[in-house]
Amino acid sequence: MPDGETGGDRIEAAVRAVLGTLSGDLTVTEAALLGELEALGREVARAKSEIAALRVDDINASHIPTATDELDAVVSHTAAATNEILDSCEVLEGLQARLAGEDAEALSGAVTRIYEACSFQDITGQRIGKVVAALKSIERRVAAVTQSFGRDRQPEPEEAPAASRTEGEELANGPQLPGTASSQAEIDALLASFD
């Protein structure tokens, strides 16, 4: 494709070129073809105006970067909060040595449950990471559509060749949604089935 020429431009140019070849009395077939080409031209013009009305530039320039920044901030703030909770737990564990019997056990049990609960930060971080990856994929597709219809005439960057992925990377999909994830008991049963 010549520099700056988009998919929409090419369709319009093709329509004009074909129309230019039609002169004099038209046959029935040529008239039908002309009608189809005119309809195609109108569709291209409509698509362009609809994309313009969507203000797609804002999506990539502002909405998606803002959304990903907000999500990054969520991860950062929850990590900071979790670490403060863990700091407090470690202080409590230090006090545990001054207690005895049931009190020491109760404190130890409570601290353990807080540690367990704090693992939420890892899970939420991974879930948010998946959302950010989905947003970036949308961003790339929006850029491709706008380029195709001439709203952004920057040459499309060449995609780096896909690096070969290991089995570990292929299978790294992050947390499943509740209801679709296997429980520890189901995983234990699966592992036991190999023995």
């Binding site: 299978l171 999909n173 992050g174 994830a181 296997s182």
Partner: peptide
């Protein structure tokens, strides 16, 4: 891990 699909467990095993 949070990877809880059967295929992950099978691959790990």
């Amino acid at each position: 891990t949070a990877e809880s699909k059967t295929e992950n467990v099978v691959a790990a095993k």
